[in-house]
């Protein structure tokens, strides 16, 4: 009887934890939707910011975030592919490969703020580019490198060895095997990882606030140096600090809802593949 009660008590306690976690999600999403929904309109997405955020829309913010994120993708995808191949193919099973994996894990833990700081020191100050979308893209790309890379490495490691053996049996060189077997078979991992990385990059403020983005006065960037963009996260960051004007408050929630929708849709697209991979890896 005592064991039965303990069982029930423990189930209830852990179940409550789960309810709290899931409840938090509901409360947060509800809070954002409820406040942000009234702000959404056609004009909100097509006009540019006016009256320090109290009027107008977020067209150039969405555009700027898009530019940053796509640049990050262009930076991280080739780098991640190269590193993943080196780690999981060329250095497979060697200590150096394991060290590369560890390096990626540590890189994954580095606070995004520090990526922004280093971007500022190197590009904005030392190279004298000033704030630029390109720096933001580089910094974000470097930041999401581990995410993309790890997704790809997992896929490569999970690739049945008979594919590779079959190709090797046909006399293909290793580079040919990579191009004809490994990359085509694992491009799903690259896509999943990139989507996750993009979702993360789109929501980050810290890496771009010193390097790439301003609150107002930028449109479509021309050139590289001194060509910042607007962005959604920085917009929210600045507006939320003086959130007393009700007009501003509505707009900032609208921007938050937009950002949330953007980020969630990116990670939702990647979700099925991720869960499947995860379950297989743990052979449930």
């Amino acid at each position: 009887m005592r064991r039965r009660l303990t069982d029930i008590a423990f189930r209830t306690a852990t179940g409550l934890c789960a309810c709290v976690a899931c409840g938090l999600l509901v409360v947060i999403v509800w809070a954002i939707c409820q406040r942000g929904w009234p702000a959404l309109s056609w004009r909100f997405f097509t006009e540019q910011i006016r009256l320090v955020g109290a009027d107008g829309g977020i067209f150039y913010n969405v555009l700027g975030t898009g530019i940053l994120v796509l640049t990050a993708l262009a930076v991280s995808a080739p780098l991640a592919t190269a590193i993943a191949l080196v780690q999981a193919v060329y250095l497979r099973g060697r200590p150096l490969g394991a060290m590369l994996g560890l390096f990626l894990q540590v890189l994954n833990g580095v606070p995004s703020l520090l990526f922004g700081l280093i971007g500022m020191i190197v590009f904005v100050q030392a190279l004298g580019w000033g704030k630029s979308w390109l720096i933001g893209g580089l910094v974000l790309g470097f930041m999401i490198l581990p995410t993309v890379c790890v997704a790809l490495v997992e896929r490569i490691a999970a690739l049945p060895s008979r594919y590779v053996e079959a190709a090797a049996g046909l006399g293909l060189r290793r580079s040919q095997i990579i191009r004809s077997v490994i990359l085509p078979q694992t491009k799903g991992g690259l896509i999943t990882g990139s989507l996750l990385g993009l979702a993360r990059a789109a929501g980050e403020t810290a890496p771009i606030m010193f390097t790439a983005t301003v609150f107002a006065g930028a449109t479509v960037p021309r050139g590289v140096s001194e060509s910042p963009v607007l962005s959604l996260p920085y917009h929210i960051f600045i507006l939320s600090q003086d959130s007393f004007d009700p007009a501003v408050v509505t707009k900032v929630w609208g921007a938050a809802l937009t950002l949330l929708a953007l980020v969630c849709s990116l990670s939702l697209i990647a979700l099925p593949a991720r869960l499947k991979n995860h379950e297989e890896a743990n052979n449930v």
Binding site: L25, E204, R274
Partner: peptide
């Protein structure tokens, strides 16, 4: 539950800040 948690993980920190 995992999906819910992944979504929670995706919320940007600036939104949490707000």
């Amino acid at each position: 539950v995992k999906v819910a948690i992944e979504l929670l993980a995706g919320i940007p920190s600036v939104v949490y800040g707000l």
